[in-house]
């Protein structure tokens, strides 16, 4: 199997995300924003962040990187999520930001983007952000009715998976109904001009600055 992860010679910034779905989502957003100097790197879940940052800083092209953004779901505890990323940065001797969303002055600049950056949704994950961007879509009325129907029929979904389930239900209303969240981003099924994406876009703009 050939390796598929490395820092490209043209990359100046890195956006470190968890999995392939996030990778596709942010690649689509960056393409829409025409920010080609940012390279998206999927490095696995939270527990693998330290190990994988160790590998990234050893990349021969790491020295050309001037900023690193790390995207994490906020989950139940924003403070703990932020601290866990800071601990990982400390362990690989990279600058540690003082607060979420802020870039360090020391180079390479680092910053942590917790998703969603503003109070939306119930599960504090990328799915909440995407659902918020679709709030005005007529299909969302049907999605909500569908989940109410499930609840009234005694089919209870765990709170933690509600947002994921709603994303699937919403995407089932698109012309190609079998896409996952990241694939849907590549197909422009999410409304990039929605205000809910603005803090994320601002973060990416800062990440792209030298």
């Amino acid at each position: 199997m050939n390796p598929n992860l490395k820092i490209k010679e043209t990359s100046l910034s890195l956006l470190i995300v968890e999995g392939m779905d996030e990778e596709k989502f942010f690649k689509a957003m960056l393409e829409q924003m025409q920010l080609s100097v940012i390279q998206v790197m999927p490095v696995g879940g939270k527990t693998q962040l330290v190990n994988n940052l160790t590998v990234i800083v050893k990349d021969p092209n790491f020295k050309q990187i001037h900023a690193i953004g790390i995207v994490r779901d906020g989950d139940d505890d924003h403070i703990a999520a932020f601290q866990s990323v800071c601990d990982a940065l400390r362990k690989v001797v990279l600058p540690v930001p003082r607060a979420k969303g802020e870039f360090t002055i020391d180079k390479p600049g680092t910053a942590v983007l917790l998703i969603p950056p503003t109070e939306v949704g119930t599960n504090r994950m990328l799915e909440d952000l995407c659902l918020a961007s679709a709030e005005d879509d007529p299909a969302m009325v049907c999605v909500e009715q569908y989940f109410e129907c499930l609840a009234s029929s005694g089919i209870a979904l765990r709170d933690k998976v509600i947002a994921k389930a709603k994303v699937h239900a919403y995407l089932a209303s698109r012309s190609e109904p079998d896409k996952r969240l990241g694939e849907a981003a590549a197909a422009s099924y999410w409304n990039w001009s929605h205000v809910v994406f603005e803090p994320v876009k601002e973060f990416l703009r800062q990440l792209s600055q030298p």
Partner: peptide, 9 residues
């Protein structure tokens, strides 16, 4: 860690 994520070394 590198080989686990198929990273180019």
């Amino acid at each position: 860690a590198a080989l686990d994520i198929n990273y180019e070394v």
